[in-house]
């Protein structure tokens, strides 16, 4: 089984989001591997390799500072990694770089997390599948494969669907598919010497640009209502908030 796992680098969940001159203020930000890429996509890929044999390759699009999160992915159990040396400005640029690599490497499965916690698009997996002309199953909460045929559970409104796919595919993963793994000392040591190949970008540009950022309006402080007077809450929800 030859598996590619796409990982992204994002600001830690608790980061205070600020902008200067319409750029995200990156000072004092702790960068992490995107949670759903790490906990779900990567761990399920490593589990499948442990069960059936094969290889897990990591791909990331970014500068040399991203090597830190790539090494973490290798410590969790991936075998090797590719970093496309580019500073992407939108999801299409990312997907296009990954597609260029994947076209030549013929992976059986390509995993992504469900969304990145910075731009929240749920986009790269779908774009990648289209560029490679492969099936795409999004929001998978279970995935089993015998190497030629995979059975995948995906979430839909108010329930789930069980899907069977033969041949190569792209999948985006979410909670339920695997449990987070903490890299152990042996993993961390071996990650240092695992191959990390740096390739140059294909020159394909972005399809969109961010012109400006805004912060949401400051929330007014909470109106507290006495627990003995819930009728007041109902009145406010009807007359002031106009939601019931």
């Amino acid at each position: 089984m030859k598996i590619l796992v796409c990982v992204s680098k994002v600001p830690d969940t608790t980061t205070k989001i600020e902008f200067t001159d319409n750029q995200f203020k990156a000072d004092n930000v702790t960068w992490i591997m995107n949670p759903t890429d790490e906990w779900y996509a990567l761990v399920r890929a490593v589990e499948l390799k442990e069960q059936h044999g094969g290889t897990v390759t990591i791909i990331n699009v970014g500068g040399a500072e991203n090597d830190q999160i790539i090494r973490k992915a290798l410590a969790i159990g991936a075998d090797d990694a590719v970093r496309v040396n580019a500073e992407p400005t939108d999801a299409y640029e990312v997907a296009s770089q990954i597609a260029s690599h994947a076209k030549e490497a013929n992976y059986d499965m390509i995993f992504t997390g469900k969304e990145t916690i910075d731009y929240n698009g749920f986009v790269v997996g779908g774009m990648l599948a289209e560029l490679l002309d492969l099936p795409y199953i999004s929001l998978a909460s279970k995935l089993d494969s015998d190497g030629s045929k995979a059975t995948i559970e995906r979430e839909v409104e108010g329930g789930n669907e069980i899907i069977e796919v033969s041949g190569a595919f792209v999948v985006s993963t979410q909670k339920g598919i695997a449990e987070q793994r903490i890299p152990n000392m042996r993993g961390i040591m071996s990650a240092r010497t695992k191959p990390l190949q740096v390739v140059e970008p294909n020159g394909e540009g972005a399809l969109s640009t961010i012109q400006s950022y805004e912060l949401p309006p400051q929330k007014e402080s909470v109106k507290l209502i006495d627990a003995e007077n819930v009728g007041e809450l109902v009145k406010l929800l009807h007359e002031e908030a106009k939601v019931i």
């Binding site: 999801a91 299409y92 997907a95 296009s96 929240n120 698009g121 749920f122 986009v123 790269v124 997996g125 779908g126 774009m127 990648l128 599948a129 289209e130 560029l131 795409y136 999004s138 929001l139 979430e155 839909v156 409104e157 399809l207 969109s208």
Partner: peptide, 24 residues
């Protein structure tokens, strides 16, 4: 819609049509 199906479809359409995408 940026719902379950729309998330998958909008990304694919953007790549296929080389159309700029705003997701959400």
């Amino acid at each position: 819609s940026h719902n379950y199906n729309g998330k998958a479809l909008s990304a694919r359409l953007s790549a296929r049509l080389k159309a700029g995408l705003v997701a959400g």
